[in-house]
Amino acid sequence: MHETVIAESLLAAISQEAAKQSAKPIAAKISCGTFNTVNDEILRFAFTAAAKGTPCENVKLQIEHKPIQGQCQKCKQNFDVESPDKRCPHCGSGDFQLLPDAPLVLEEIEFE
């Protein structure tokens, strides 16, 4: 349920930009990494609740998930890691090093 804090921070960031642009925001695109453990449904629900009665009411969220990547310690190629059991799709090795996870980012706002 940390999505409520994320929703409030996101609302603040969109509101700030909207005030700067003097325009009404209608959609926002965000991206997040695996380890931000964002649940889309909860984030949308929390954002709707937080934005009610503000100029950001009705802003549609587009949420992109960037899977965490690992680097194979044998052939040095990068690949998505869905579970700790993952093996390198290039050489089959199970020895990988996780690369830094993508942060939570407000990528783009669409204005009316």
Partner: peptide, 15 residues
């Protein structure tokens, strides 16, 4: 209708 690139970390206040 216009789109604006932002590229801001959402949890920057906490960070």
């Amino acid at each position: 209708m216009q789109k604006k690139k932002i590229g801001k970390k959402i949890l920057s206040a906490n960070e």
